[in-house]
Amino acid sequence: MPTRRVVTGRSREPRARFAEELRRLRAERGVSLRQVGERLGWDWSLFGKMEKGETLGGPEVVEALDQYYGTPGLLLALWELATNDKTQFRERYRRYMSLEAEATSLWHFAVSVLPGLLQTPGYAREVLAAGGLKGEELTQQVDARMGRRDLLEADDAPPFRTILSEAVLRTPLRDAGEWRRQLEYLAEVGERPNTTLHVLPFSAGRYGLDSTTLMFLRLPDGRTVAYTENAYRGDLIEEARPLDRLQRAYDAVRDMALTPPESRKFVLSLLEEVPCDPST
């Protein structure tokens, strides 16, 4: 598998940032637009328009570029930001997405929804549709979210720890077959050496993060930032004092959670409750 690459562009506007990264990667590879087109099987003029910011292309094109340049998930993350620049992505979330692509380690806590990095296509589609997306836009966003999973699958994938509230796992998808696939994927991911999965059971009682989805990112320069999110807003937090408070709350929740082996058994027990044939 290819190695990850960090975002080095400086443009703040997502569409320009995406185009800038495409130009930089091609210049670094030392190839022409025509050579890229011949290698990937698309008209080379498409890549020229993407590098000029005239078009964003589709997720399948961007995924092919991610593979070609050895940047798993990076370009898709930037593409997702650019395609949503005028809708649901606020400036802080845009910045968070770029930082996520650079992170050397990640710690996560989920209140009600699985993190995008661990979602299957069926899960992502239902969650995004519930948020109002539909049609081609929905399909593109599902494809982009699936591309972000490459962040955890590269040869140098960063360590990722997630704590899932039991409520996350007690809220199944409408389609039992898709829910089974999601639980199977969680059980598989929990076995990876770079991923640690905890379940916080209802029996743990009240806890300090009961209304906050949280992600910590350790960056290449040694800094840690956090992104918190609820139903109404998201905040990127970089100041030391609130970061320290969040870290203490996260550590307390981790101490209350099941161990990774216990958590995997919990997921498998839920899997046993899902019928193999959704019609039965």
Rank of each mutant, 00 (worst) to 15 (best):
A101L: 04
E136D: 14
P14V: 04
S165D: 15
V253I: 03
A16L: 13
V199M: 12
T120C: 02
E63V: 04
E54N: 09
L270S: 00
K265M: 10
L270H: 12
A226W: 00
L33E: 06
R223F: 05
K265L: 15
E28P: 01
E80R: 10
T8K: 13
Y69V: 10
E178Y: 00
E91N: 14
L40F: 03
N84E: 04
D244H: 12
Y123C: 14
T55C: 13
F89G: 07
P121Y: 01
R170T: 01
H108W: 11
L258H: 12
G57F: 08
T196G: 10
N84A: 15
L271Y: 14
G222I: 11
Q247K: 08
A157G: 07
D155S: 14
A103H: 02
G147K: 01
E80P: 00
D251K: 12
L214T: 08
E188S: 04
R180H: 09
N230S: 14
V7E: 01
R5Y: 01
A154R: 06
T228W: 04
P59W: 00
R192D: 09
F18N: 04
G208Y: 06
V274N: 06
Y68L: 12
L164D: 10
S203N: 06
Q141W: 07
V6D: 06
T83L: 15
V142L: 00
T213C: 08
S112C: 10
A157L: 07
V36R: 11
A82I: 13
N84I: 02
E178P: 03
Q247L: 08
V61N: 13
L117I: 08
E153K: 13
V61Q: 12
E91A: 15
